[in-house]
Amino acid sequence: MSQTQATPRRRQSKLAEQLALSIETLMAQGELRPGQALAERTLAERLDVSRSPIRQALKRLETKGAVKAREDGGYVVAHTARRPTLALLPPAEADDTEALYLQVADDRLSGKLPDKLSESDLMRRYNLTKTQLGMLLQRIVHEGWAERAPGHGWRFLPILTSPDTYDQGYRFRILVESAAILEPGFQIDVPALRQCLVEQQALIDGAVEWASPAQLFDANARLHETIASFSGNVFIIESLKRINRLRRLMEYKKNVDRNAAARRCREHKVLIELLLSDQREAAADFIRLRLRDAAREKSAR
């Protein structure tokens, strides 16, 4: 197969992967419930793509057991999904739109993009095909910094844009994340925490050297949000998710210090081990100090 033939197939495969993640997110949010029929047409309209990649995405989800085929055709939701985990892919398999994605993120952060844009504006500005635009928007929506505007076009959501607000976000996290661990209703979901441990160990074992800024952010934010979710306090959980959405692009803007990133992953492993051994007070102290040191380190860059 020639390179020109392989590239469209890789893009189609990547789009199906992103759509599968979006459908899983809808399941995790309760918008798609166990036993509910999944109509290709409805999903295609909801996610603004054709039915063909939706069909591929549903086949991927069937393989994972998230959906199951009906005897009369089509699929139904098999179970309530966890919010999906984005895989750590080596450079050869990484999304070939990464540079474009980071360019759009940088343009948004620097104020070059208005709060609202049409799809034709985006296609013209970045010289995109309809398929490329669909993949780009799926990722941006999945990561929580844009949404479809009522009526027409797309609307970017608020983000942190100044060093002062970025530092305030860290100070808020120092207060909230340590308190979450000490909440009376705190209860660990051991499989979920061990899944985070596997991901952090993969980074320690070498993935930190090639993981993209987005992958590093997702892996670390996922761990912190998972731990916050154990508190059972919906205000803590939602406030941390909102802070992470707001600070995402600021994190992309900063230069990645691979040595510092590896050290943080090792610290995350210590934190996980403290929680698994039920040393909650030590874990609360540890996360407070770790976040304080991370804030100082990143403010200096």
Rank of each mutant, 00 (worst) to 15 (best):
M1W: 12
A207P: 02
Q18R: 04
S239H: 02
L175W: 06
L289D: 15
L240W: 00
T165K: 03
K116A: 02
H152N: 07
W210D: 04
R139P: 01
G111R: 01
I23T: 06
W154M: 02
R60E: 13
A146C: 15
L246A: 13
Q12I: 07
V198C: 10
L216C: 12
S13Q: 11
L175V: 14
I237W: 11
R171Q: 05
K241D: 02
V67G: 04
R288F: 15
D72N: 14
L61S: 05
R9C: 04
S2Y: 01
K64Y: 10
D106W: 05
A99M: 06
E225W: 09
V77H: 07
S118H: 10
L102H: 08
R258P: 11
H152C: 13
L21F: 15
Q12W: 05
E40W: 08
A81P: 07
A20Q: 01
I174S: 04
T25C: 12
L157S: 04
A94W: 00
P84R: 03
E177D: 08
K112Y: 10
Q3G: 08
G144E: 00
L100A: 00
R55P: 05
A260Y: 13
S13H: 13
Q200N: 11
Q215F: 04
I159L: 11
Q138P: 04
G73D: 11
D218N: 12
L38P: 05
S299L: 01
A39P: 12
Q29W: 09
K241N: 12
Q3H: 10
R9W: 02
P91V: 10
L86Q: 06
R148Y: 08
D167G: 10
F230D: 10
L137Q: 00
D278N: 13
I159D: 06
G185A: 14
K298F: 13
L128I: 05
K241A: 14
E17Y: 15
V234Q: 13
G74W: 10
A294N: 07
S50G: 14
D106C: 01
I159Q: 06
L291N: 01
R245C: 00
D205C: 09
F235S: 00
F172C: 09
A192Q: 11
R280G: 14
T25L: 12
F172G: 15
K112D: 15
L203E: 02
Q3A: 13
L274K: 11
F286V: 13
R60G: 07
H152I: 01
A202N: 05
Q18K: 13
K14A: 15
T42C: 03
S239A: 12
A66L: 10
E297V: 11
A92G: 13
Y166Q: 04
A69E: 09
R33G: 08
R46E: 06
I159G: 10
P184Q: 02
E147W: 08
M135Y: 04
T131W: 02
G153A: 15
R11W: 00
L216I: 09
G111H: 05
W154C: 06
L15T: 03
Q29C: 12
R82C: 14
V67N: 11
A94D: 00
L133I: 02
L38V: 07
L175I: 09
